Computed example of a mutant assay.
Amino acid sequence: MDVTVKARAARERPGFARKARAYVALTKPRVIELLLVTTAPVMVLAQNGIPNLWLVVATLVGGSLSAGSAGAFNCYIDRDIDRVMERTKNRPLVTGELTDREALVFAWLVGIASIVWLAVTTNLLAAALSAAAIFFYVVVYTLWLKRRTAQNIVWGGIAGCFPVLIGWAAVTGSLDWAPVILFFVVFLWTPPHYWPLSMRYRADYASVNVPMLAVVRGRTLVGLQVVLYAWATVTCSLLLIPVASMGILYTVVAVAAGGWFVIESHRLYSTAIRHDEVKPMRVFHSSISYLTLLFIAVGVDPLLPF
Rank of each mutant, 00 (worst) to 15 (best):
M1D: 11
V5P: 00
V5H: 11
A7C: 01
A7L: 12
R8W: 00
E12H: 08
R13Y: 04
G15D: 15
A20K: 07
V24S: 04
T27Q: 03
T27R: 04
P29A: 11
L34N: 05
L36F: 04
V37M: 14
T38R: 06
V42Y: 00
M43W: 03
Q47L: 00
N52H: 14
L55E: 11
L55A: 10
V56F: 06
V57Y: 07
A58D: 14
T59M: 09
L60R: 04
G63C: 04
G63F: 00
A67L: 01
S69C: 06
A70C: 03
G71S: 11
G71F: 10
Y76A: 15
R79C: 10
I81F: 14
D82G: 06
R83H: 13
V84N: 05
K89W: 01
T99A: 09
D100G: 13
D100R: 12
R101H: 10
E102M: 09
A103W: 00
V105K: 05
V105G: 03
W108P: 01
L109F: 07
V110Q: 05
G111S: 09
G111E: 05
A113K: 07
I115S: 03
V116H: 04
W117A: 03
W117E: 03
V120C: 02
V120T: 05
A126S: 14
A131G: 09
A132Q: 08
A132V: 13
I134F: 08
F136I: 13
F136S: 12
Y141S: 08
L143G: 00
A150K: 11
A150T: 08
N152Q: 12
G157V: 10
I158C: 04
A159M: 06
V164P: 00
L165D: 03
G167H: 07
W168I: 06
A169P: 09
A170C: 03
V171T: 12
D176A: 15
D176P: 01
P179V: 10
V180M: 14
F183P: 02
V186M: 14
F187A: 11
L188H: 11
W189V: 06
T190S: 08
P191W: 06
P191V: 09
P192Q: 12
L197M: 09
A203Q: 07
A203K: 13
A206M: 07
V210W: 04
P211W: 10
M212C: 05
R217T: 10
G218P: 01
G218Q: 03
R219K: 06
T220H: 04
L224Q: 14
V227L: 10
L228G: 12
Y229I: 02
T235Q: 01
C236T: 15
S237T: 12
L238K: 02
V243Q: 05
A244W: 11
A244H: 12
M246A: 15
G247E: 06
I248N: 06
Y250R: 12
T251C: 02
T251W: 02
V252N: 02
V255C: 06
G258D: 07
V262P: 01
I263C: 01
E264Y: 09
E264D: 13
E264Q: 14
Y269A: 08
T271Y: 06
I273L: 15
R274A: 15
D276G: 14
D276R: 10
D276N: 13
E277P: 00
L291W: 05
L294I: 08
F295Q: 01
G299W: 00
V300Y: 05
D301L: 03
L304H: 07
P305G: 09
